[in-house]
């Protein structure tokens, strides 16, 4: 009888602590959806406790990134070698080498003290299209944010990126869009006015794997790719999480019976 009460109390403790922790969560998400339109929730392959990245999608997303985004955006925390690591697009060793060699990176100084350009290698990060934030802002009108972590630094993550990519509309009558700006209701940080022109249009990037290259598809692919750049250990996290959870549940079970056994003579 007492055991029943103890179980209930334990459950209550767990629920209460979860409630205390999550009671404050809506504060974060509520403020974003209060301003911009509701985000369409994509059924990503990496969602859920067993989610993994879709390798072909990451490879397509990389192509979109390379041909479209990289013209203006940097990606300073991602190395070429990452493209070949487990849990990512998993390009083969020679593929990564060839991909990296397609970029010129600055190195040096050489023996005479000069900086020089050489083909990229696995150890290098993606070279930035502009020397610094100021140069990018001066040339483009606004600084295009670094994309390494963008899927974790925006409320909604990949859903937000996807919505933003294809969410450009005509501005409502009461909104004046300044010269060099565009209207995108999802861009809440700028109250709908964004300096980035609509980046994707149907058929823009040629896919090698025969996937239809609609703007919608490309947008999803690049959003998934950016989720990977932000959280490259997501698959490892899900895998280890399952092992830890299985162990802890078993441990809690054993301890529950041990507790009951040991306390049996006290009730």
């Amino acid at each position: 009888m007492k055991m029943k009460m103890i179980q209930k109390l334990t459950l209550a403790a767990a629920v209460a602590s979860l409630a205390m922790a999550t009671a404050f969560l809506p504060a974060g998400s509520a403020r974003a959806s209060a301003e911009g339109p509701e985000l369409h929730e994509v059924d990503w392959s990496f969602n859920g406790p067993f989610g993994t990245f879709d390798r072909s999608q990451l490879r397509r997303g990389y192509k979109v990134y390379k041909e479209v985004c990289a013209t203006c955006h940097s990606m300073q925390y991602v190395h070429f070698r990452n493209l070949g690591e487990p849990g990512g697009p998993e390009f083969t060793g020679p593929e990564v080498k060839a991909l990296a060699a397609g970029y010129q990176v600055q190195d040096g100084p050489d023996l005479s003290g000069d900086m020089f350009e050489r083909p990229g290698e696995g150890k290098d990060v993606f070279p930035a299209p502009y020397a610094n934030e100021e140069a990018a802002a001066a040339s483009l009108g606004a600084y295009p944010p670094d994309l390494s972590l963008v899927a974790k630094s925006r409320v909604g993550g990949p859903d937000y990126i996807h919505a933003l990519m294809i969410g450009y509309t005509e501005a409502p009558a009461d909104v004046t869009v300044p010269a060099g700006g565009y209207y995108n209701p999802y861009f809440t940080a700028g109250s709908g006015i964004i300096a980035m022109p609509p980046p994707l249009s149907d058929g823009q990037v040629d896919y090698d794997d025969g996937t239809p290259n609609t703007a919608e598809q490309m947008s999803q692919d690049v959003s998934a790719f950016l989720m990977w750049t932000a959280e490259p250990k997501l698959e490892a996290r899900h895998r280890l999480g399952f092992q830890v959870m299985a162990y802890l549940l078993a441990l809690a079970g054993i301890l529950f019976f041990a507790t009951r056994k040991i306390w049996a003579d006290q009730h």
Binding site: T10, S17, M245, A252, I262
Partner: peptide, 15 residues
């Protein structure tokens, strides 16, 4: 043993 059981339940939430 009781503390250990309580801790193991707490760790499930933590994990």
């Amino acid at each position: 043993v009781k503390d250990a059981f309580g801790l193991s339940v707490f760790l499930i939430m933590f994990a």
